[in-house]
Structure formats: structure tokens, C-alpha cells
Amino acid sequence: MGPPDRGGPRADAGGGPVVGAAADPLAAKVRTLAPSMTRSMLRVAEAVAADPAGCAALTVTGLAELTGTSEATVVRTARLLGYPGYRDLRLALAGLAAQRTSGRSPAVTSDIAVDDPIEAVVAKLARDEQQTLADTAAALDTVQLAAAVQALADARRTDVYGIGASGLVAQDLAQKLLRIGLVAHAHHDPHVAVTGAVQLGSGDVAVAVTHSGATADVIEPLRVAFERGATTVAITGRPDGPVAQYADHVLTTSTARETELRPAAMSSRTSQLLVVDCLFTGVTQRTYATAAPALSASYEALAHRRAPRPRPSTR
């Protein structure tokens, strides 16, 4: 996924398949993009994710018949998953089938019931968090990640936008960058965000954090920054969402299925924080000569703010 044309909004929010992911990238991508698929497209996507070997042996007509859809739906699904056409999807499925180990156990359901004991809640939440992190790692485009890391490392100033739960993630990224001596600001007030975005330009970076990819109060300052010439980054669970139109680099996050007792904001924040940690670690690596002393100085500055350890009792 290359940078969008700086002359206008991004035309294509999709990206190529992730190579070398630690987890199953196709299954992760299907879970991430499921909310944006039609029912017929979802049938195709779930079929190829569940049986890559079997589907790789089918023609476009055969897969359409297997899923009760049309050839056009199969091709649209392939493109949404990041492949130029069905032939490319078949090749990827064949490669994925060869990589998968036999005897893989199916996913464990993690629905939380109202009467679940707290032990079961802990276990189910832990499984969901692990799956969310694995899906995010699998779907994360490392080329885009590396480009975003370099932009942050070179930035004169970084502004991060987020609302609600995503606002907490925006604050986390900004304070991490501050700890290594970089100039960074987190904005959760949309008016202040736009006011700050007007001041950005070439050499600056703007980061939008929005799981839905459609939060207007986050998209607007990113659009302003984009049009002012700043490098723009979107951390989102919907790489096909409106926010991607104004993002040079799109970092896709995953989320566990939302349930009544577990809102999407919980799992989306987990995946967003993983991306933030990846960005921060990458930037620290590239700026280590200045980052290491800055980290040490911040630790020393905060040391006197910590409560002293209690003295051992003499009784």
C-alpha cells in the first residue's frame, strides 16, 4: 500500500497480502473486514479462510457455486482481501495451505454469559485478548509500519488524534514519544485538533486513531494535516473506511467480536495499543542515540515522585 496522491484523497485503501506474518494472515483479515462485507462476500471469505487448500483447487466458477454466490462476488471478495484478482487469491491460498500445520484446533468460543463465574470471565477475556493481538500482528502491514516509524522518527512535530477509548490510545502514543525527547501532542478536542493541524506541514506527522475509520472528529484534523502536506498515519480497524482517504500509511488493527458484556472498545483498544508499542519501539531503535538519554532523564525526573518503600517492621 503506497502513499496516496498528495493532490487528493486516497483512492485505494486496500493493501497487498502480508508476507511472513506469525499468525494466519488471511483468517485475521477476514475477521477484520467482516463488518464491511455483504453476506455473499462473507460466505466466500469464510470459505477460503476455512479451507484454503480446497478453494485453491477451484476455478472462480467453482468457488461461486460452492458458496452459492456469483463469479463477480468472488472477484470483489478477492479484491477486498487485498488481491488484484482471483488468480492471485488462488496462488495465495495454495501457499497458505502449504504453510498450515495439520491438526490445528478450532477457535474456542469466548462469549461471556451474565451468570459466568469470575474465573470463567478472566479465562474468556484472556483468550479474546490473545486472539485480538494475534490477528493484529498477522494483518499488520510491516512495510507500512516501517514507513510510519521512519516518519515519526524524522518528524519535527507529531499530532495524534483520538476520541473516547481511542483518545486514551492517542495519549499513550504522544506520551511515549515525549519520553524519548520528541515533540508530540495528543488531541481529543476536535476544535483544538483542527487548529493544531492547520499549523502542520512538510516534516510533521499527524496520526489518527479510530477503530471504526469513520469518526468525523478524527478524520477532519487528519484531512487538514494531509492537505497541509504533513505525513499522515491512520490506526484503524477499517482500512476501507473514510479515514484511509487522507492517510499516507494505514495500520490495520483487529478486534474480537463485540458482545453485550464486552463492547468493541475494549478489544479494539488492545490492538491499537499493540500498534502504538510497535511504533514506539521502532522509533526508539532509530533514534537510540538520543532516545536512551531522554528515557534515563525522564526516569530520574520522576523518581522523586514515587512513594518510598515501607521500612521493615521491627516488631
Rank of each mutant, 00 (worst) to 15 (best):
P9K: 06
A11E: 15
D12R: 09
G20M: 03
D24G: 04
K29V: 10
V30K: 08
T32M: 15
P35N: 11
M37T: 01
R43T: 07
V48W: 10
D51N: 12
D51L: 05
G54F: 07
A57D: 13
A64I: 12
G68N: 05
S70C: 02
S70R: 02
T73A: 14
V75K: 09
V75D: 14
R76W: 01
A78F: 07
A78C: 04
A78N: 03
A78G: 03
R79P: 00
L81Q: 08
Y83I: 08
P84A: 09
Y86R: 03
L89G: 04
L89Q: 08
A94Q: 14
T101Y: 06
S102M: 08
G103N: 04
G103K: 05
P106R: 13
I112T: 11
V114K: 00
V114M: 08
D115Q: 03
P117Y: 07
I118W: 07
E119W: 04
V122E: 13
A123W: 00
K124N: 11
E129H: 14
T136I: 14
A137R: 12
A139K: 01
D141M: 10
T142C: 05
L145W: 09
V149T: 13
A151G: 10
L152D: 04
A155I: 09
G164D: 05
G167N: 07
A170N: 10
Q171D: 14
L173F: 14
K176L: 13
L182I: 03
H191E: 08
V194F: 00
T195R: 10
G196W: 09
G196V: 00
V198M: 09
V198C: 02
D204T: 05
V209K: 04
S212A: 14
D217I: 00
A225V: 06
A225D: 02
F226Y: 14
R228N: 09
T232Y: 02
V233S: 12
G237E: 13
P239S: 11
P239A: 06
P239L: 04
Y246E: 00
H249A: 07
T253N: 01
S254K: 01
A256I: 01
E258A: 14
T259C: 02
T259D: 03
L261M: 10
A265S: 15
S268G: 11
F280N: 01
T281R: 13
V283Y: 08
A297R: 11
A297D: 11
P308S: 11
P310A: 08
P312F: 10
P312Q: 10
